[in-house]
Write a protein that binds this DNA or RNA. Structure first.
Length: 302
DNA sequence: AAGTCGGGGAG
DNA sequence: CTCCCAGACTT
């Protein structure tokens, strides 16, 4: 039953119909060989993979994850590592603050959870850098819980099933509720549906184009056959020439340096001195870089 | 709800 | 070249 104030969007398919259409397609098309999907991967390994995959393509994450897990197999291992080593191993995956938060996660899990990654999404969300998506992903993909796993792909697919061209800029409570309403009762099946929705959004129902002709749920979709609107759906910040770009260059310099770096070498990464000042100040404030007794710059020792 | 936070790969 | 990626967090 719907309230009169709600829109008249097409009804979403029932969970059972969705699963019936989606899962055979998923069995035939799901990519993977992703290393963290191998049997025997720990909850910690899954958590690390999900943090690394936040806004970084999984293909780029895979080799870093392999080296990372070989070096620091358990939370206590990462907790004890020098932060400089952690940031170097993170490499060029972007958003290095994720690496800091991941190490904080390791310390909290090691010290307050006896080294065991929580299975409850609410508990996981208390950890730094873990939001709704990552918490659900760990709880479902490792622990096998029954929760909606809502990433950008799932939000887009669910929006289109409901007749819209795309989801909004931010994840809303309505997005989460709509995705949860699509989960079948059976817990193991629900987990596969979540992964299948993500995969459908990555391979068929993508941001740039729809392939309704090959989509397994085209008959149940409110947007099927419609054209995507022209132009960018979301405003995006340029990267080149931004303050963010300068920070990236400073971090790259310090990652590749053998020891502490003089200010003069920092200044050499960018022509605009004021932008370097701003970048360095922000990196220090974020805990991504530090200074030694002589005022030289380096990655944080702890 | 909009801005900010990297860097690279795909189109 | 532009756009987007298994998002989280702050404002």
């Amino acid at each position: 039953m719907r309230a009169a104030t709600e829109t008249t969007d097409p009804a979403l398919p029932s969970p059972d119909v969705l699963a019936e259409r989606l899962l055979p397609w998923f069995d035939a098309h799901n990519r993977t060989e992703l290393p963290w999907r191998r049997p025997g991967t720990t909850a910690w390994g899954v958590l690390v993979s999900e943090i690394m995959s936040q806004q970084t393509q999984v293909a780029r994450v895979a080799p870093v994850w392999e080296a990372w897990m070989a070096r620091w197999p358990e939370p206590a291992d990462l907790a004890a590592a020098p932060t400089a080593d952690v940031l170097r191993e993170w490499g060029r995956m972007g958003y290095p603050r994720r690496a800091l938060r991941l190490q904080e996660c390791a310390r909290i899990i090691a010290e307050e959870h006896g080294g065991t990654v929580p299975a409850d999404p609410a508990e996981l969300e208390k950890l730094p850098g873990i939001g709704n998506y990552t918490a659900a992903a760990v709880a479902v993909f490792h622990y096998g819980g029954r929760h909606a796993v809502v990433d950008t792909n799932v939000r887009r697919v669910v929006a289109r099933l409901g007749g819209r061209s795309d989801a909004g800029t931010a994840t809303t409570r309505a997005d989460l509720a709509a995705a949860a309403a699509l989960l079948p009762e059976d817990t193991a099946t629900a987990a596969r549906v979540s992964l299948a929705l993500m995969e459908l959004g990555a391979l068929v129902c993508t941001a740039r184009k729809t392939e309704c002709g090959t989509c397994p749920v085209t008959a149940e979709c409110g947007f099927s056959g419609q054209e995507l609107p022209e132009g960018p759906s979301r405003k995006r910040q340029r990267y080149k020439g931004t303050n963010r770009h300068v920070r990236g260059e400073v971090m790259a310099l310090l990652r590749d340096a053998d020891g502490p770096v003089e200010r003069a070498r920092i200044d050499a990464v960018w022509t605009d001195r004021r932008m370097v000042d701003e970048a360095v100040a922000q990196l220090i404030a974020d805990g991504l870089i530090g200074t030694d007794e002589q005022g030289r710059f380096e990655l944080p020792s702890r």
